[in-house]
Design a binder for these strands. Sequence first.
RNA 1: GGUCCCGUAGCUCAGUUGGAUAGAGCAACUGCCUUCUAAGCAGUAGGCCAUUGGUUCGAAUCCAAUCGGGAUCACCA
Length: 604
Amino acid sequence: MNVFFEGALKSGVSDSLKSLYGMEAGIDSIHFQETKKEFEGDVTLVTFPFIKSSKKSPEETGKEIGKYLEEKTNFIASFNVVKGFLNLVITEEFWKNFFLTVSADPSWLFDPTKNETLSRGKKFLMVEYSSPNTNKPLHLGHVRNNLLGYSVAGILEAAGHRVMKVNLVNDRGVHICKSMLAWKKFGHGETPESSGMKGDHLVGKYYVLYDRKYKEEVEHLVNKGTVREEAEKKAPLQLEIQDMLRKWEAGDKETLDLWNLMNGWVYKGFDVTYKKLGVGFDKMYYESNVYLLGKKIVEEGEEKKVFFRKEDGSVWVDLTDVGLDQKLLLRGDGTSVYITQDLGTAQLRFDEFPGLDQLIYVVGNEQEYHFKVLKEIFKKLKRPWVDGLFHLSYGMVDLPSGKMKSREGTVVDADDLIKEITEEAEMTTKALGKLDDFDSEEAKHLYHVIGMGALKYFILKVDPKKRMLFNPAESIDFNGHTGPFVQYTFARIRSVMRKGENVNFSVSLSLQNIRMTKEEKHLVRLIYNYPSVASEAAAGLSPALIANYVYELAKAFNHFYHDHVIVDEAAMELSVFRLQLSALTAAVISRSMNMLGIEVPEKM
RNA sequence: GGUCCCGUAGCUCAGUUGGAUAGAGCAACUGCCUUCUAAGCAGUAGGCCAUUGGUUCGAAUCCAAUCGGGAUCACCA
């Protein structure tokens, strides 16, 4: 619902309670809900909370409030009371006025500077997402992360916030060293060019190879009588990795050159995948640049006696007072751990961007503990921006066979997935055979748009915090509650509008002689709801809300389309109204899908 | 074991600031294309909202316990 009339309605109810029963009810304590389909009305007020004051039956109370509203406000046409539920019918005049307003200027719906429902307090937000390791290509789990992050940023922007999308690339550490070492020993100088492999896949291949060779070494040692734990530490490859890490930290040229070379391959590969996913970033951070930053904060904490040092020189924070554990912040040898760098980067960002209100981390739920710790530490350090730290946690993507495991080869690779889904879109589209006038470039683009629409919608429509099941064989559908369904509805509207453009209607939009049908009113209502849905989605960082809303809207349009003739030369005024209604629906669909990062096609 | 998240139709999911008879889609079965795109529309069937107890005018929604599933509690990142 929308402040457009909700505010007035609430104060109407508040007034009525006061004058009828002498009850002081704050505007915020009054809640409406949409009237259920089975009953007549647009909004419903539950009267039970008021019967204590009214000392009358729910029915009676409802009737009195309804009567009051009908008389004292100008947009209640009628009302009825069923079992204590006061159903209010909004006047057709109201919907017509709304429709005329947004038809004349659709920006009223979309522009946060014009629509106060849409923007409730402009903020400056940073969304960190993606944050890949550079030792292997992206998989399905990353896909969920990227789509979520990009979409959340889009939703926040649509609500009028200033948003920065950032990516913290995990470009250093043992994982990349493993790929480097395996490539150096077994790669024979193989490159993306020589192998024809995408760079990230090539590097990933050596990561897997390292793991295999390392296991062989461990088994070999175990067979010769070494205890497994011991063998894992003493395998030659493991020792070489340690050596390589040290060299990297010491700035050894040969190591850094190799590191740069292989990371370069990976970035090229990532760029291709990001582009296909349609995601992007305003700023890239690299762990190799920031991993030392946290040390200053550790020093500060020590001075402030918030942290403490153990005999071996390691620095810790004690969080047992807030139900967490003691946490290591700096190793005895002075090197940093994972959280050290996150301390540093968080500080860096608030320093770098004055006025930053919120830092949203889109990271899997396996790191909930980590972010809790991070926040508690900054709380102890009394950072004024600590409440702006937010971990947008999401669940794993599981396969029917269970968890994805890279070592067991059960990961769903992002590039493969995109390829398959695009091919599927192509097959389906061709089978329907509606694209005779498309050239091959256009067609290719369309397959991609539809395929990605299906994938993105599939992932974004579910609540982020739930783990979701992905069945590669049957998960992605193009019918029903899917992205392509919504895309199709948009294309259908555009098709009708093209027909409308070819007809010369010599009247302008006027609703004087029009009685809206049930379906038309339903559509107008849904369009009316857009700003509050958008604003709710922004407040809750929830793409799923948008996805479900736009589905409902598309369904409502298809229903309307089925029962009504839109372009009819014999009924000019009506046609102009219906075309306008269709156009507005299309605009809202397009906007909503955009927030999900999904394109809508003119034809499909 | 402690902490956190999840459990709704055969399957995938909505609905969770307490409100009326719990909603979609897929799969199954029926209809609807000489008229604006049938990737559509209409219909049938499918439910002990994990279980038990509590809170109250009212509970899928809040509280407690139990049972299932997952995550986490590293001098890994």
